[in-house]
Simulated assay, not measured.
Amino acid sequence: MSFLSPFFNHLNIKDFIDILIVAILIYQLLLIVRGTKAAQMIVGLGFLFGLFWLGITFKLYSLNWVLAHFFDSFFIIVVVLFQDQFRSALASVGTRRNILTVFSKDVHDFEIDEIVEACGALSREKIGALIVIERTHGLLNYINTGTRLDSRIHSDIIYSIFESSSSLHDGAIILQNSKLTAAGCFLPLSKNFDIERHLGTRHRAALGLTEVTDALVITCSEESGKINLCVEGVFYLCKTEKELGQYLRHIWSNESLDSALRPIKTKDIVR
Protein backbone atom coordinates (compact mmCIF):
# COMPACT_ATOMS: atom_id res chain seq x y z
CA MET A 1 0.00 0.00 0.00
CA SER A 2 3.03 2.28 0.16
CA PHE A 3 2.53 3.32 -3.47
CA LEU A 4 -0.80 4.92 -2.43
CA SER A 5 0.79 7.01 0.32
CA PRO A 6 1.64 10.01 -1.93
CA PHE A 7 -1.96 9.99 -3.14
CA PHE A 8 -3.47 10.08 0.36
CA ASN A 9 -0.92 12.63 1.55
CA HIS A 10 -2.30 15.16 -0.93
CA LEU A 11 -5.96 14.62 0.09
CA ASN A 12 -7.69 16.96 2.49
CA ILE A 13 -11.16 17.02 4.04
CA LYS A 14 -12.59 18.93 1.07
CA ASP A 15 -11.41 16.20 -1.31
CA PHE A 16 -13.00 13.48 0.82
CA ILE A 17 -16.32 15.37 0.84
CA ASP A 18 -16.08 15.82 -2.91
CA ILE A 19 -15.44 12.09 -3.46
CA LEU A 20 -18.27 11.14 -1.08
CA ILE A 21 -20.82 13.33 -2.88
CA VAL A 22 -19.85 11.93 -6.29
CA ALA A 23 -20.02 8.37 -4.91
CA ILE A 24 -23.53 9.00 -3.53
CA LEU A 25 -24.68 10.45 -6.87
CA ILE A 26 -23.32 7.44 -8.77
CA TYR A 27 -24.95 5.06 -6.28
CA GLN A 28 -28.32 6.78 -6.62
CA LEU A 29 -28.02 6.67 -10.42
CA LEU A 30 -27.36 2.92 -10.27
CA LEU A 31 -30.43 2.45 -8.05
CA ILE A 32 -32.59 4.33 -10.55
CA VAL A 33 -31.42 2.37 -13.61
CA ARG A 34 -31.33 -1.03 -11.86
CA GLY A 35 -33.63 -3.47 -13.61
CA THR A 36 -34.52 -1.08 -16.44
CA LYS A 37 -33.46 -0.87 -20.07
CA ALA A 38 -31.13 1.96 -19.00
CA ALA A 39 -28.91 -0.67 -17.37
CA GLN A 40 -28.51 -2.36 -20.76
CA MET A 41 -27.57 0.98 -22.33
CA ILE A 42 -24.89 1.50 -19.66
CA VAL A 43 -23.42 -1.88 -20.62
CA GLY A 44 -23.44 -0.74 -24.26
CA LEU A 45 -21.62 2.49 -23.37
CA GLY A 46 -19.10 0.46 -21.40
CA PHE A 47 -18.50 -1.66 -24.49
CA LEU A 48 -17.82 1.48 -26.55
CA PHE A 49 -15.36 2.71 -23.90
CA GLY A 50 -13.63 -0.66 -24.16
CA LEU A 51 -13.35 -0.30 -27.94
CA PHE A 52 -12.00 3.21 -27.51
CA TRP A 53 -9.32 1.93 -25.15
CA LEU A 54 -8.39 -0.82 -27.62
CA GLY A 55 -8.21 1.74 -30.42
CA ILE A 56 -5.81 3.93 -28.44
CA THR A 57 -3.70 0.98 -27.26
CA PHE A 58 -3.26 -0.60 -30.68
CA LYS A 59 -3.42 2.69 -32.65
CA LEU A 60 -6.52 1.85 -34.68
CA TYR A 61 -6.83 5.28 -36.25
CA SER A 62 -10.19 4.87 -38.01
CA LEU A 63 -11.85 3.49 -34.89
CA ASN A 64 -10.28 6.24 -32.78
CA TRP A 65 -11.56 8.91 -35.15
CA VAL A 66 -15.16 7.59 -35.05
CA LEU A 67 -15.29 7.12 -31.27
CA ALA A 68 -13.49 10.38 -30.52
CA HIS A 69 -16.20 12.31 -32.38
CA PHE A 70 -18.85 10.25 -30.58
CA PHE A 71 -17.47 11.03 -27.13
CA ASP A 72 -17.11 14.74 -27.98
CA SER A 73 -20.89 14.92 -27.51
CA PHE A 74 -20.95 12.36 -24.72
CA PHE A 75 -22.88 14.41 -22.16
CA ILE A 76 -25.58 15.36 -24.67
CA ILE A 77 -25.92 11.70 -25.66
CA VAL A 78 -26.22 10.65 -22.01
CA VAL A 79 -28.98 13.21 -21.36
CA VAL A 80 -30.93 12.02 -24.43
CA LEU A 81 -30.53 8.31 -23.62
CA PHE A 82 -31.36 8.62 -19.93
CA GLN A 83 -33.89 11.46 -19.95
CA ASP A 84 -36.56 9.38 -18.18
CA GLN A 85 -34.13 8.36 -15.44
CA PHE A 86 -32.93 11.96 -14.93
CA ARG A 87 -36.55 13.13 -14.76
CA SER A 88 -37.33 10.50 -12.14
CA ALA A 89 -34.26 11.40 -10.08
CA LEU A 90 -35.00 15.14 -10.14
CA ALA A 91 -38.64 14.54 -9.23
CA SER A 92 -37.50 12.58 -6.17
CA VAL A 93 -35.49 15.48 -4.75
CA GLY A 94 -37.10 17.11 -1.78
CA THR A 95 -40.19 14.89 -1.64
CA ARG A 96 -41.85 14.69 1.73
CA ARG A 97 -43.05 11.12 2.01
CA ASN A 98 -44.74 11.35 5.38
CA ILE A 99 -46.70 14.51 4.52
CA LEU A 100 -47.74 13.85 0.94
CA THR A 101 -49.02 10.28 1.35
CA VAL A 102 -52.47 9.56 -0.05
CA PHE A 103 -53.52 7.13 2.63
CA SER A 104 -53.06 7.00 6.39
CA LYS A 105 -53.63 3.71 8.16
CA ASP A 106 -55.68 5.21 10.98
CA VAL A 107 -57.65 7.89 9.12
CA HIS A 108 -58.09 6.84 5.49
CA ASP A 109 -58.31 3.04 5.59
CA PHE A 110 -61.82 3.48 4.20
CA GLU A 111 -60.46 4.60 0.82
CA ILE A 112 -58.41 1.42 0.42
CA ASP A 113 -61.49 -0.67 1.12
CA GLU A 114 -63.47 1.28 -1.48
CA ILE A 115 -60.77 0.78 -4.13
CA VAL A 116 -60.55 -2.94 -3.37
CA GLU A 117 -64.34 -3.33 -3.48
CA ALA A 118 -64.57 -1.53 -6.83
CA CYS A 119 -61.75 -3.63 -8.32
CA GLY A 120 -63.46 -6.80 -7.14
CA ALA A 121 -66.72 -5.85 -8.87
CA LEU A 122 -64.91 -4.82 -12.06
CA SER A 123 -62.92 -8.06 -12.07
CA ARG A 124 -65.98 -10.28 -11.63
CA GLU A 125 -67.77 -8.60 -14.53
CA LYS A 126 -64.57 -8.41 -16.64
CA ILE A 127 -64.71 -4.66 -17.05
CA GLY A 128 -61.38 -3.09 -17.97
CA ALA A 129 -60.04 -0.48 -15.56
CA LEU A 130 -56.94 1.61 -14.96
CA ILE A 131 -56.61 3.18 -11.50
CA VAL A 132 -53.65 5.42 -10.62
CA ILE A 133 -52.73 6.31 -7.04
CA GLU A 134 -50.39 9.28 -6.68
CA ARG A 135 -47.56 8.97 -4.17
CA THR A 136 -44.77 11.56 -3.93
CA HIS A 137 -44.30 12.43 -7.62
CA GLY A 138 -46.88 14.95 -8.81
CA LEU A 139 -49.17 13.76 -11.62
CA LEU A 140 -50.67 17.12 -12.65
CA ASN A 141 -49.47 16.71 -16.26
CA TYR A 142 -51.55 13.54 -16.56
CA ILE A 143 -54.48 14.89 -14.54
CA ASN A 144 -54.80 17.76 -17.03
CA THR A 145 -55.35 15.29 -19.89
CA GLY A 146 -58.61 14.08 -18.33
CA THR A 147 -61.81 15.43 -16.82
CA ARG A 148 -61.62 16.97 -13.35
CA LEU A 149 -63.94 15.38 -10.78
CA ASP A 150 -62.48 16.12 -7.32
CA SER A 151 -64.95 13.75 -5.69
CA ARG A 152 -64.61 11.48 -2.69
CA ILE A 153 -63.26 7.99 -3.32
CA HIS A 154 -66.20 5.57 -3.48
CA SER A 155 -66.52 2.13 -5.05
CA ASP A 156 -69.78 3.00 -6.83
CA ILE A 157 -68.22 6.05 -8.52
CA ILE A 158 -65.15 4.08 -9.62
CA TYR A 159 -67.33 1.26 -10.97
CA SER A 160 -69.65 3.60 -12.87
CA ILE A 161 -66.72 5.41 -14.54
CA PHE A 162 -65.40 2.22 -16.13
CA GLU A 163 -68.74 0.89 -17.37
CA SER A 164 -68.79 0.77 -21.18
CA SER A 165 -71.67 3.25 -21.29
CA SER A 166 -69.59 5.88 -19.48
CA SER A 167 -67.94 8.54 -21.63
CA LEU A 168 -64.89 8.43 -19.32
CA HIS A 169 -64.29 4.67 -19.33
CA ASP A 170 -61.56 4.78 -21.98
CA GLY A 171 -58.77 6.18 -19.84
CA ALA A 172 -57.33 6.18 -16.33
CA ILE A 173 -58.67 7.61 -13.10
CA ILE A 174 -56.16 9.34 -10.81
CA LEU A 175 -56.52 9.33 -7.03
CA GLN A 176 -54.77 12.17 -5.25
CA ASN A 177 -54.90 13.35 -1.62
CA SER A 178 -57.80 11.03 -0.73
CA LYS A 179 -59.86 12.27 -3.68
CA LEU A 180 -60.84 10.92 -7.07
CA THR A 181 -59.21 13.85 -8.85
CA ALA A 182 -59.74 13.09 -12.54
CA ALA A 183 -61.01 10.47 -14.97
CA GLY A 184 -60.41 9.71 -18.64
CA CYS A 185 -56.72 10.55 -18.27
CA PHE A 186 -54.07 9.54 -20.80
CA LEU A 187 -50.88 7.87 -19.57
CA PRO A 188 -47.53 7.40 -21.34
CA LEU A 189 -47.04 3.98 -22.91
CA SER A 190 -44.01 1.96 -21.90
CA LYS A 191 -41.01 2.19 -24.23
CA ASN A 192 -39.79 -1.22 -23.08
CA PHE A 193 -39.75 -3.57 -26.08
CA ASP A 194 -39.11 -6.63 -23.90
CA ILE A 195 -42.54 -6.74 -22.24
CA GLU A 196 -44.86 -9.64 -22.96
CA ARG A 197 -46.70 -9.42 -26.26
CA HIS A 198 -50.09 -10.34 -24.82
CA LEU A 199 -50.19 -7.19 -22.68
CA GLY A 200 -52.60 -4.63 -24.09
CA THR A 201 -52.58 -0.84 -24.14
CA ARG A 202 -53.96 -0.60 -20.61
CA HIS A 203 -51.10 -2.62 -19.13
CA ARG A 204 -48.51 -0.83 -21.26
CA ALA A 205 -49.82 2.47 -19.93
CA ALA A 206 -49.50 1.18 -16.36
CA LEU A 207 -45.90 0.19 -17.03
CA GLY A 208 -45.16 3.48 -18.77
CA LEU A 209 -46.33 5.61 -15.85
CA THR A 210 -44.62 3.55 -13.14
CA GLU A 211 -41.35 3.64 -15.09
CA VAL A 212 -41.17 7.44 -14.85
CA THR A 213 -43.00 8.10 -11.54
CA ASP A 214 -43.47 6.35 -8.20
CA ALA A 215 -47.26 6.06 -8.65
CA LEU A 216 -49.15 2.84 -8.01
CA VAL A 217 -51.32 1.61 -10.88
CA ILE A 218 -54.06 -1.02 -10.61
CA THR A 219 -55.25 -2.71 -13.79
CA CYS A 220 -58.32 -4.88 -14.34
CA SER A 221 -58.28 -6.94 -17.51
CA GLU A 222 -61.45 -7.02 -19.58
CA GLU A 223 -60.34 -10.29 -21.22
CA SER A 224 -59.49 -12.33 -18.12
CA GLY A 225 -60.74 -10.20 -15.22
CA LYS A 226 -57.32 -10.45 -13.58
CA ILE A 227 -56.25 -7.68 -11.20
CA ASN A 228 -52.63 -6.51 -11.26
CA LEU A 229 -50.82 -3.94 -9.16
CA CYS A 230 -47.98 -2.24 -11.02
CA VAL A 231 -45.12 -0.82 -8.93
CA GLU A 232 -41.93 0.60 -10.47
CA GLY A 233 -42.47 -1.21 -13.77
CA VAL A 234 -43.30 -4.60 -12.21
CA PHE A 235 -46.71 -6.30 -12.17
CA TYR A 236 -47.94 -8.12 -9.06
CA LEU A 237 -50.90 -10.42 -9.74
CA CYS A 238 -53.68 -10.16 -7.18
CA LYS A 239 -55.75 -13.35 -7.31
CA THR A 240 -58.31 -12.03 -4.83
CA GLU A 241 -59.53 -8.71 -3.48
CA LYS A 242 -57.87 -9.58 -0.18
CA GLU A 243 -54.46 -9.84 -1.86
CA LEU A 244 -54.88 -6.40 -3.47
CA GLY A 245 -55.80 -4.94 -0.09
CA GLN A 246 -52.77 -6.55 1.52
CA TYR A 247 -50.44 -5.13 -1.11
CA LEU A 248 -51.87 -1.60 -0.72
CA ARG A 249 -51.66 -1.72 3.07
CA HIS A 250 -48.15 -3.15 2.87
CA ILE A 251 -46.98 -0.21 0.77
CA TRP A 252 -48.83 2.54 2.62
CA SER A 253 -48.90 1.23 6.18
CA ASN A 254 -46.00 -1.24 6.20
CA GLU A 255 -48.29 -4.13 7.14
CA SER A 256 -46.71 -7.54 6.64
CA LEU A 257 -47.61 -9.67 3.62
CA ASP A 258 -48.71 -13.29 3.72
CA SER A 259 -45.80 -15.60 2.94
CA ALA A 260 -47.67 -16.86 -0.16
CA LEU A 261 -47.64 -13.39 -1.74
CA ARG A 262 -44.82 -12.21 -3.98
CA PRO A 263 -42.71 -9.63 -2.10
CA ILE A 264 -42.76 -6.14 -3.56
CA LYS A 265 -39.34 -5.01 -4.70
CA THR A 266 -39.26 -1.27 -4.26
CA LYS A 267 -36.68 1.08 -2.80
CA ASP A 268 -39.33 3.60 -1.81
CA ILE A 269 -42.10 2.07 0.29
CA VAL A 270 -44.04 4.84 1.98
CA ARG A 271 -44.09 4.38 5.74
Rank of each mutant, 00 (worst) to 15 (best):
F75R: 07
S178R: 13
Q85Y: 10
I32A: 01
F58H: 10
D258T: 12
F162A: 00
L45C: 10
K242E: 09
N192E: 13
F70G: 04
L149W: 00
I218N: 01
H154V: 09
L29V: 07
L30C: 13
G94P: 05
W53M: 04
I115E: 03
P263M: 02
L45W: 14
L207F: 10
H69F: 14
K179D: 03
L140C: 14
L187M: 15
E243K: 03
D194G: 09
L45Y: 14
I269N: 11
L140H: 12
D156G: 01
H137G: 05
S123M: 07
L199R: 05
I19A: 08
I195F: 11
R87D: 04
N12M: 05
L149G: 00
S62N: 14
I77E: 09
S2Y: 12
N12P: 03
Y159M: 11
T266P: 04
Q176W: 04
I251C: 00
F162W: 06
S221H: 09
V234N: 03
F52D: 04
H203G: 01
T101C: 07
H10C: 06
D109K: 07
N177Y: 06
A91L: 08
F86W: 14
S164V: 06
C185H: 08
S62M: 12
G46T: 13
E232D: 07
D106G: 09
H250A: 14
H137V: 09
S5M: 11
L20I: 15
F103T: 00
F162P: 01
D84G: 13
H250V: 12
A260S: 15
C238W: 00
G44R: 05
S155Q: 14
K239H: 15
A68L: 07
T210I: 02
R197V: 13
I174D: 00
L20C: 12
T181N: 01
F71R: 04
S164W: 08
